[in-house]
Simulated scan of single mutants.
Amino acid sequence: MPAVWVVMPAAGRGTRFGGELPKQYLQVGGQPLFAHTLAALFAHPAVAGAVVAVSQNDADWPGWREFAGKPVLSCVGGATRAESVLAGLNALPETVRADDFVLVHDAARPNLALADLEQLLERGGNDPVGAILAAPVRDTLKRAGDDGGIDATEPRQRLWRAFTPQLFRRLQLSRALESAAAAGVEVTDEAMAMERLGHRPLLIEGSENNFKITTPADLARFEFVLRQRREQGTGNGG
């Protein structure tokens, strides 16, 4: 797999998490949360560097230029995830060509397994469109009525939960995000933008441990994982 860069949207305020400090800057194990995310990504030799999209006048961004020996760039993100990802794509170095693959990964998803990243790069990099990490839906799904009662049980076959990283070509993804914005469609992940243009990214099954920090309970879960990993003397196994 040729070298790839990462775009990391980190301009959100994490309103669901609560608190004054955005969750990506919360200290975990002596480092901000997004540092653990960068470490998981940079553990793969094919990952060359990252662009982090931060909010305007972000006083919490430490201004890093490198991490783990690899370059870290920053840019001003937007009001939505899609705007931040597009800003990050535009801020990539000139060495990243239009048809080169780029990873997009959540800043608050620090428990990415190296084996999952390897699968994504290997299989997605051989696809004309790209791929995302995801997991099949295993729970029974219920559709709720307005009164809170159950209206129906939904079939879960062929349903997947989308994770990140997501791997797409720089120009294709930029055009997909621009098209969605022009149509007034707020996409919730990069694959959705690609789907609008008729592209069919691969679904690559990844570990359920690649969870996103959304609530304080999620943060406590990652702290527990981190303590276990350090006590066992292991790296990031997801």
Rank of each mutant, 00 (worst) to 15 (best):
N111E: 13
L121T: 00
P128R: 01
V102P: 01
D218M: 05
P71L: 11
E66D: 15
E20L: 13
S179I: 04
N57S: 14
A152P: 04
S179F: 13
V28G: 08
L177A: 09
A91Q: 02
G130H: 07
T164G: 07
L167D: 03
Q119C: 13
A152L: 09
D60A: 15
W61I: 08
L26I: 14
M1P: 08
G29F: 02
A59Y: 01
F168C: 11
P9R: 03
T37D: 00
E94T: 11
P216G: 10
I150T: 15
A59R: 15
L86C: 02
E208C: 04
P136M: 12
L73I: 09
E178Q: 15
G124N: 09
E118P: 11
K142W: 11
G145S: 10
N126T: 12
L21W: 05
K70F: 08
Q166L: 10
N210S: 07
F163I: 07
G88M: 06
L177S: 07
L21K: 05
M8H: 00
A87R: 02
A152K: 03
G233A: 13
N236T: 10
A53C: 08
L33W: 04
F222N: 02
L133C: 09
R158S: 09
A46T: 10
P62W: 11
V4D: 02
G130Q: 05
E66K: 04
A131M: 03
R143T: 12
V4M: 01
S84F: 01
E20F: 11
R143E: 02
V51N: 05
V28I: 04
G30N: 01
V28F: 05
D58S: 10
T37L: 00
T164L: 10
A162K: 07
A162Q: 14
W61T: 00
A152Y: 02
F224A: 15
R229A: 12
T80D: 08
M192Y: 12
P216Q: 12
V85K: 00
A82P: 06
L38G: 08
R230F: 08
Q27L: 11
Q232V: 14
K142M: 10
V7Q: 03
L159A: 08
G78F: 06
A176F: 00
S84L: 03
S207D: 15
G125E: 07
E205P: 04
A182C: 14
T95F: 04
L121V: 07
L202W: 02
A144Y: 15
K212H: 12
V52A: 02
A191H: 02
R221F: 03
G29K: 01
T95Y: 06
A50C: 14
T15H: 12
L173D: 04
R156G: 04
R109Y: 07
A35F: 13
P62V: 05
W5I: 05
G149M: 11
P201E: 00
R13F: 06
E195F: 14
A87D: 04
E83P: 04
L120I: 12
V7I: 05
E20K: 15
D100S: 12
E205F: 03
D116G: 07
V96N: 06
L197W: 06
L202D: 00
L112W: 01
Q172I: 08
G49N: 04
R109W: 11
A183C: 13
I204W: 08
